[in-house]
């Protein structure tokens, strides 16, 4: 059984009739795999990540999404998270005054409760944070501050990766995690993802540029154009795309459609 199976997914923004953003998207992800979805602006990349995360405001007009054999689209966002779907946000949200450690412990305990486990002791949690922060070469003091409040772009992205490390998702969706990062921050974030990667989980990278893929090497690259995956391949596809530009796949897609 695949970890994630998207079949012919069609979706639009709630209330916007006749204009689907996703127009028959297919994608299969197995444990142990890293997939990258690349595409030009407006191709539906972020819509896909939000729909997988369960954000309100989208209407599914066709197709289905199976996660570990279950209907993902039927689940509430919190249930998806507890089942191991993690979305690293393109723009992590600020929660003024909400302490980062408290936030993350509440999240972890919600996941643990869902698995029938006891809440984590405060002391064990501090230890866990220290371990993970060390593993990822991140500063754990990020968690002493209010969640994302006044964080720089780089700090926000690092904080997402630290949260991911603690929550240990099965499917991590990284939405434009590279945007707004300088090269050093990009390396730290990428290195973090590489260290968390295992045979038990999978990563879906959503990105505009090939740059991130120098640091996180995908097993599969998919090109998303106008709400459909028009081309899939190995890591070399990303390089080809970088060289020839998105127009190349657009032409390719049109040729396919014509034939």
């Amino acid at each position: 059984m695949s970890l994630l199976e998207i079949r012919n997914l069609q979706a639009r923004i709630d209330g916007v009739e006749g204009k689907d953003i996703l127009r028959g998207l297919d994608l299969t992800i197995n444990k142990g795999e890293v997939h990258a979805i690349m595409g030009p602006n407006g191709s539906g990349k972020s819509t896909l990540s939000y729909i997988l995360g369960g954000r309100e405001g989208y209407e599914i007009t066709g197709g289905e999404v199976q996660y570990e054999g279950k209907d993902l689209l039927e689940m509430d966002p919190e249930e998806r998270a507890r089942e191991g779907v993690f979305l690293a946000f393109q723009y992590p949200v600020e929660l003024p005054g909400v302490n980062g450690t408290y936030f993350l412990r509440t999240a972890l305990n919600a996941v643990r409760e869902h698995r029938g486990e006891k809440p984590i002791e405060v002391r064990d949690f501090s230890k866990l944070i220290r371990e993970k922060a060390e593993l990822l070469d991140l500063d754990p003091s990020l968690l002493n501050r209010a969640v994302n409040e006044g964080f720089s772009g780089g700090e926000k992205k690092r904080n997402e990766i630290l949260q991911m490390a603690i929550l240990e998702p099965k499917l991590a969706i990284l939405d434009e995690t590279d945007s707004g990062l300088d090269i050093d921050a990009l390396q730290i974030v990428a290195e973090g993802v590489n260290r968390l990667k295992s045979e038990q989980n999978a990563v879906l990278l959503i990105t505009h540029y090939q740059r991130l893929l120098n640091y996180i090497v995908p097993d599969f690259v998919h090109v998303l154009v106008q709400g459909r995956i028009v081309k899939s391949g190995g890591k070399e596809l990303a390089l080809e795309l970088e060289e020839k530009g998105y127009q190349w796949v657009r032409d390719h897609a049109e040729a396919q459609a014509a034939a």
Binding site: F103, A110, V111
Partner: peptide
């Protein structure tokens, strides 16, 4: 904000 929390299981 609510979605962000939900997406962490809260």
């Amino acid at each position: 904000q609510i979605f962000y929390c939900n997406q962490r299981g809260i």
